[in-house]
Simulated scan of single mutants.
Amino acid sequence: MTIIIDTDPGIDDAIAILYALRHPAQDVVALTTVAGNIGLSVTTFNAGRIAALAGVPTPVHAGAAAPLDKEASPELGIHGNDGLGGVHFPEPLSPPASQDAVAAMIEILAAHPPKTVDLFCLGPLTNLALLLKRAPESAQRIRRVIAMGGAVDEPGNVGPKAEFNIAHDPHAAAAVLAANLPVTLIPLDATRQFRADVGYITALRETGAECAKASADLIDAYFATTDGAESRPLHDPCVPLLARHPELFTLETRLLDVDLATGALVDGPHPIKVAMGVDADGLRAALLKGLSC
């Protein structure tokens, strides 16, 4: 499985990337970055740090520094000023590539047969929207897009019905939904069912694996912003987990669009495959096993 991960790390992004980079069946050929949880310079630096901890020299390509048609609105309260909750990561193994994110996507998609490269989207969809604008024929070569974003029947987390990734760049999300790409969306309806407790953090640390121990520290940082017995939802790890374990997700097709004013998903003309439920115990077991490699 050949993969490009488009990301704005981000605590839960980091866990998702560590899982994907260490999984023997997932060949991550590039990390492309976007401003979202925090500014582009930090998300790009963090992507390099995460790859360094995983011990995988994956190239990092900086992408969009701002949404298509609105002001950026980072989420520092959850992810901290460094984007990774203050958890220690090593320095990147090398500086970011000179080629920008969209150019890298175009080159990678051209170098592989059509419909053999997956795009995992862990942040706002700005880079994918720019790819659709700059090279729509390249975007049509993508095998599938798996994206974390939106709220369908659940309340939002940045508004009554709006979720951060979609609301950060609603124009980009609307363009992606309208593009007739093979998109699977993982909204809050599914991700809110996937959390960790203190026992799970202990199990991660007891593996002795660097990626598992770092993920335990990241989830610990998520606890710092809650008052309960469980962490915040592990949103982004659902993306690589769905790619490897679709049987752990309940998928439906919904007709959707994006309200450009609020960033909420609304009823619309575009048939989109949506994950509406998960086997949370199964996901926790799969994540633990993958991070222990």
Rank of each mutant, 00 (worst) to 15 (best):
E137P: 04
H88C: 11
G123C: 10
A104D: 02
L130Y: 02
A167V: 12
L122D: 01
K133F: 00
A173W: 01
E137M: 04
E137R: 12
R143Q: 14
A151C: 13
D118M: 11
I142C: 03
P74K: 01
I166H: 00
P90M: 09
I106T: 13
H79N: 15
V152F: 14
L76E: 04
G159S: 11
L93H: 13
E163Y: 01
A110G: 09
A151S: 15
G149T: 09
G85V: 06
A103W: 09
S94G: 12
A172Q: 04
V87T: 14
K161N: 13
P96G: 10
Q99S: 12
G156Q: 08
D82T: 08
P96Q: 07
L128P: 07
A135T: 08
L125F: 07
G156N: 09
S98D: 13
F164R: 05
P170W: 06
V87M: 02
S138L: 09
L84M: 10
D169S: 02
L130Q: 07
C121N: 13
L125D: 01
A147R: 00
A173M: 05
R143H: 13
D169Q: 08
H168A: 06
A173V: 01
A101Y: 06
A104E: 05
P170V: 11
L76P: 03
M105S: 08
E137Q: 15
L128T: 00
D118V: 00
S138H: 08
A110K: 14
P170H: 08
A172G: 04
G156Y: 07
A103G: 14
A172V: 02
C121R: 10
G83H: 05
L125V: 00
E91D: 13
L125Q: 05
P74F: 06
I142D: 01
H88Y: 00
P136R: 02
P124C: 05
P95T: 12
F120A: 12
